[in-house]
Design a protein around this nucleic acid. Structure first.
Length: 1170
RNA sequence: AGGCGCGUAGCUCAGUUGGGAGAGCGCUGGCCCGACACGCCAGAGGUCGGCGGUUCGAGUCCGCCCGCGCCUACCA
């Protein structure tokens, strides 16, 4: 066999990453709805490089996806990116600043061009990182929130919501960032407790009869006060309600938002929202600069006075303070109040200050005109709550036609072919004892074959089939059989012993079930594409109709469950969502305001019915085409490479992801020019069938065309498009259906939505998960995903959030470089415990790289001992030894453990299980056991006796190798979802592996027939005995390589038989020269014991009695402590009375064991003492 | 203020219906034994945050307290 060199992660990872992508083996062209497992990636920002959080997120998804794929599901995992409006704009603005430019100087168009220049660089970097991680995504389905199709979807979504009254424009108090010059949603504001001051200011009564003192943390806003509010029941102020106060400092007219001038006299109003116990119980009301005051202002119909501009500088309403920064104004105002004796006092005060999540500038609440999604509307809110809280049931009634075929003498052959290569892998022949055959089409039972004159068999077959169809992966057919199954692989025929079986083709695997009361899964007999070839002697067919009622529960499940409450709490107290942002990078709001009649026109390509119009409209709306254009420009844009899929043109992209119906459309400048001309030509009116809408107009001066949009209400052409763009999360909310081609009813959308799983961090449950649920249930009338796996945050080793500013980030790329992607993935997987943050230090990666190295070297051992003609030797192998059966048992148990763990998204437990098995069981013990057979010298000589001996040794060696290969191959498959690269590499090097990739093979299932409890018990006992001897050697400080004589004494039949059977293993692994039975402790030996076996080790020369005694003293103490506990329990009458008998029995047994052990320890100590 | 989570070996964490306290790293001692020193073998180390309750029996269930973290909130 080819020799393995050293483990070099970089080399193999690059190789396989390239292989997976180039062969597109994770692309499924036409997924079957019943077999699919779909996932959309949480699109990373185009701005950043991937951090550990992304690595964790992607790793978890990949583990589940690879596992599901191996379980036979058609996995479609869609990758993509989001455009990250504010963040991206921020980055590019910073770059401009370095050139000494600002975006305002550059202008919108030029600025956007600059962003498009920068975005691909960053995007490619992220894509490369994802590739390095080894994610099994379908790159052919990659999407971007700002690609042509998605932008179109965003406009459609906007329009639909707007027309249903669920998007509205309104003057509202929003969180304004004076630095980024945009409104932010509530979620984009970070609140933190900060030290501030509380100023007490006297507001004199108009009649001069006194004053009211108000307390405020923001005195500068007093210039915008339009009332003072008190609680209606507050005795201190009750009598003042309705009176007027004179606003201090202000001796100028102020202009309200609606344009009226008002003076400095403001009313005292009563409002229940005022808390009498806070401050003075009287609160100044600044409706234009405070969220609460805004509400109070609305209720009491107060004037709204804005005193600051966009940059939070005081405006003309601030009179003498106009032009000052808000903090400077604060200082001056406080000084002035103090001078005038109107400042009663100043107190230290702790309060929450809101800051911009991006630039950390203090938010200025301000009234402005913004767009909102009315998420508080029951149409959105109630459904979004329901699908999480209790789920919605969807009942579907259908009429099904089932063909019943009464047959005589049915036989079936099933050729199974490879999914990718198409070659036949196996043929399964059933020619005796077939009870029935059922077939499924489109998820429905389509036909039943059953023996003549036995309708009850048909009935039973139908029931069983329905039962099987409940299972998650699609069922193609089911065969009931009482007899023998013949499997032919590569011309070699093997049989599965006769019995009562069910044979089912599920996913892409042929599964074998034992057919008892409840069918019990036995094994996968083949995987690949199966074709049924039934042959029957005679046939009578009738067709029956049947009504089927199907109930499907639409419920989003959070994992871990605690996040359900988190989500619901937020949902109950939902406020409308501000979606407009005053930035340039993003989806510009598709609203054109009529400058003549004021009508707000929402345009989408639905307003045009020809594909040319639609294309041109979309290009304009996306900002790709200017208002004036030439046909050549249009052609050039459409034929230029698409941003996300450069192998495709923009036009191709449209055809694939947006305009399925127009797939044959081709566009060139010539045809466009004709089209425009015809449109614009007044003579066209005379040509029947040609539109006369005059959609295009030619300007003879500029020699360019324009598309004419007209107000839908008054027909005016004087339209102006809304300047604002939409919140990035608005488009992200459409992600789970947008990526599949919505609003088109594409095949993908039908087959892949709802998705099965979403993996994300808890920090964006509100931002994203909630909004996907809102939009998904609204637009698709169905949940966007079934399971939401919420993972923890990755922190540094001190538990602090990783951030660039703190300099405590661990860069995944660096880790991949140093330790390999497999080590990175495995580390993250094993550290991810549900509901707990991950504290990470670089050391952890090192540890799991060692694991990868271990796997590598174990395989190396197997391969270097495998002869070239291994396959031809297999037929001559000896029967399995107990240790072979033992390791197979553990292997099968591990397969089950990992499978169960992954079913529960318990990734850590799964990783732990395979780690322990591979290292502790397979490497430390089984490989060591196997060496006895592997390294046994083959005797020289030609005589018959030697030949026989030779053959025996060879056959045993073959068996050992067989087990090594068998177990290793399966272990690699179990490990594959966690460590895809190393397993792929090593798997291909195994002679038995056939196929394109390990990732397309089955995930090992527990097989009942590979569980050997008796052998397992024996080998476990053997391990104990060996460990005991090793322990004594170590206590005696005997060199490990030195072979010693040893003796044993036991009255236990079981232990004795174990020692006899495995004598060689004991000699080898405990490094003994001999191990013989002895009636008494021989001279010059030191004793130890393991359960009922006493071991005597012969020693020569000096023995450190002191040290040995200490070791046994310690053991004695432990035993005594244990005994005390057990005795206490057993002497408790209540325990004996009330505890279950088996528990009492167990304690008794423990006591016996402890007492025996104690006796032995004491005896040893006695010997040592003398 | 409310809600959630956490407190187990020096460190990071497991501990699945309550029934003899575990892993990895680190540490100590001994070993290059024909896969692997990225390794092998052996070992030390814990009043499971505190108090109280339920129970024959609590790391595990309940209550209170202490400490840490996070999220939410309209105390101006």
């Amino acid at each position: 066999m080819e020799e393995l060199r050293e483990y070099n992660p970089k080399e193999i990872e690059e190789k396989w990453s390239k292989f997976w992508i180039e062969k597109a083996i994770y692309h499924v062209e036409k997924p079957d709805k019943r077999k699919k497992f779909s996932v959309v990636i949480p699109p990373p920002n185009v701005t950043g490089s991937l951090h550990m959080g992304h690595a964790l997120n992607s790793t978890l998804q990949d583990i589940v996806c690879r596992w599901q794929r191996m379980k036979g599901r058609q996995v479609v995992w869609v990758p993509g990116f989001d455009h990250a409006g504010i963040a991206t704009q921020y980055v590019v603005e910073k770059q401009l600043a370095q050139e000494g430019k600002s975006r305002l100087e550059l202008g919108r168009e030029e600025f956007i061009r600059r962003v498009w220049e920068w975005v691909p660089k960053s995007r490619n970097a992220i894509r490369t990182q994802l590739e390095k991680l080894g994610v099994s995504v379908d790159w052919k389905r990659e999407r971007f929130t700002l690609d042509e199709g998605f932008s179109r979807a965003v406009r459609k979504a906007f329009r639909e919501l707007y027309e249903k009254g669920l998007i509205y424009r309104s003057e509202y108090i929003v969180n304004w960032c004076p630095k980024d010059l945009t409104a932010l949603s509530d979620l984009e504001v970070e609140h933190e407790e900060e030290k501030g001051k509380l100023w007490y200011i006297k507001y004199p009564l108009e009649d001069g009869s006194g004053y009211i003192t108000v307390a405020t943390t923001r005195p500068e806003t007093m210039l915008g006060d339009t009332a003072v509010a008190v609680h209606p029941e507050d005795e201190r102020y009750k009598h003042l309600i309705g009176k007027r106060l004179r606003l201090p400092l202000v001796n100028w007219k102020r202009r309200t938002l609606s344009g009226e001038e008002i003076d400095e006299f403001i009313p005292v109003v009563a409002d229940e929202r005022v808390k009498p116990e806070f401050g003075t119980g009287a609160v100044k009301v600044t409706p234009a600069h405070d969220p609460n005051d805004f509400e109070i202002g609305k209720t009491h119909n107060l004037p709204f006075v804005r005193v600051m501009d966009e940059q939070a500088k005081m405006n003309e309403n601030a009179g003498e303070f106009a032009g000052l920064d808000r903090y400077e104004a604060r200082k001056r105002i406080v000084e002035k109040l103090r001078e005038q004796g109107l400042l009663e006092k100043e107190e230290e005060h702790l309060h929450a200050v809101g800051r911009c999540y991006r630039c950390k500038t203090v938010i200025e609440p301000m009234v402005s005109e913004q767009w909102f999604v009315k998420v508080s509307d029951p149409a959105i809110k109630d459904t979004s709550i329901k699908v999480v809280e209790e789920g919605e049931e969807e009942v579907e009634e259908r009429e099904v036609f089932i063909q019943y075929a009464e047959v005589e003498g049915l036989t079936i052959t099933i050729p199974v072919s490879d999914e990718t290569s198409g070659e036949t892998k196996a043929v399964i022949v059933l020619d005796k004892g077939i009870e029935f055959l059922t077939g499924i089409r489109e998820g429905e039972l389509a036909y039943v074959y059953y023996p003549e004159g036995k309708p009850e068999v048909a009935q039973r077959a139908k029931e069983l089939t329905y039962e099987f169809m409940q299972k998650s992966s699609g069922l193609e057919f089911l065969i009931g059989l009482e007899g023998e199954i013949t499997v032919i692989r590569q011309g070699i025929e093997s049989k599965i012993e006769a019995g009562r079986y069910l044979l089912a083709f599920e996913g892409n695997r042929l599964n074998l079930y034992r057919w008892e009361e409840t069918p019990q899964f036995l094994q996968v007999i083949e995987s690949g594409h199966a074709r049924l070839e039934p042959v029957q002697k005679s046939i009578k067919v009738k067709v029956e109709r049947e009504k089927r009622r199907e109930v499907r529960k639409k419920q989003v499940k959070f994992i871990p469950e605690q996040w359900k409450k988190f989500y619901l709490d937020w949902m109950y107290n939902l406020r409308d969502w501000c979606i407009s942002r005053q930035i340039w990078w993003g989806h510009r709001i598709p609203v054109w305001d009529c400058q003549d009649c004021g009508h707000a026109n929402v345009f989408t390509d639905d307003d045009f019915d020809r594909v040319y119009d639609k294309l041109i409209f979309n290009l304009i709306a996306d900002g790709k085409l200017k208002n004036e254009f030439t046909p050549e420009e249009v052609e050039e844009i459409l034929k230029s490479p698409n941003f996300v899929h450069p192998e495709m043109s923009v036009l191709d992209f449209y055809k694939k992801f947006a305009f399925h119906k127009y797939h044959s459309t081709d566009v060139d400048a010539h045809s466009l020019r004709l089209f425009f001309t015809q449109e614009a030509n007044p003579m066209a009116m005379l040509t029947p069938g040609v539109s006369t809408r005059g959609l295009y107009r030619y300007d003879s001066k500029s020699k360019k065309w324009r598309m004419v949009l007209r107000c839908k209400k008054c027909g005016s052409e004087n339209l102006k498009q809304e300047e604002d763009v939409l919140d990035t999360w608005f488009s992200s909310a459409l992600w789970p259906f947008g990526v599949f081609g919505w609003p088109e009813e594409s095949e993908d959308l039908k087959n892949l939505y709802p998705t099965n799983l979403l993996v994300t961090g808890f920090d964006i449950i509100f931002f994203w998960v909630a909004r996907m649920i809102m939009m998904g249930t609204y637009f698709m009338k169905d949940i966007p995903f079934e399971d939401v796996y919420v993972h923890a945050l990755v922190r540094d080793k001190k538990g602090q959030k990783m951030s660039k500013t703190k300099g405590n980030v661990i860069d995944p790329l660096e880790i991949i470089d140093k330790y390999g992607a497999d080590a990175l993935r495995f580390t993250l997987a094993i550290l991810t415990v549900q509901g707990r943050d991950i504290k990470l230090s670089e050391k952890r990666f090192e540890g799991y790289k060692h694991f990868a190295n271990k796997i590598w070297n174990a395989t190396r051992f197997v391969l270097m001992n495998t002869p070239e003609d291994f396959a031809t030797m297999l037929p001559y192998m000896a029967p399995l030894r107990p240790e072979d059966k033992w390791i197979m048992t553990l292997l099968n148990e591990t397969a089950e453990k990992v499978d169960k763990a992954l079913q529960n998204y318990d990734v850590s437990r799964g990783a732990q299980a395979i780690y322990d098995f591979f290292w502790s069981d397979f490497c430390d013990w089984f490989i060591e056991f196997s060496k006895e057979r592997i390294y046994k010298p083959i005797p020289e000589g030609d005589d018959e006796e030697t030949q026989k001996e030779k053959a025996k040794i060879l056959s045993e060696k073959t068996t050992a190798l067989y087990t090594l290969h068998y177990v290793l191959e399966k272990a690699l498959r179990i490990l594959h979802p966690f460590m895809p690269y190393i397993t792929e590499e090593l798997w291909h090097r195994l002679p038995a592996s056939k196929g394109e990739s390990i990732s397309l093979k089955d995930f090992p299932q527990k097989k009942q027939e590979e569980l050997f409890p008796e052998e397992t018990r024996r080998v476990e006992r053997l391990r104990e005995i060996i460990s005991t001897i090793r322990s004594l050697r170590s206590d005696l400080q005997i060199e490990p390589s030195k072979r010693l004589k040893a003796f044993y004494r036991t009255e236990g039949e079981f232990s004795k038989s174990v020692i006899e059977e495995f004598k060689n293993h004991i000699l080898n692994l405990a490094k003994l020269e001999s191990f013989e039975e002895a009636p008494e402790r021989p001279e010059n030996t030191v004793a130890t014991f393991s359960k009922d076996v006493e071991v005597f080790l012969s020693v020569e020369g000096h023995v450190d009695i002191e040290k040995l005694s200490q070791s046994y003293e310690k053991k004695k103490e432990k035993l005594l402590a244990e005994l005390e506990r057990v005795n206490k329990k057993l002497s408790n009458e209540n325990f004996l009375k009330k505890a279950p008998p088996e528990v009492v029995e167990k304690e008794r047994r423990i006591k016996e064991e402890l007492e025996e052990d104690l006796q032995k320890v004491e005896r040893i100590l006695k010997v040592l003492e003398k």
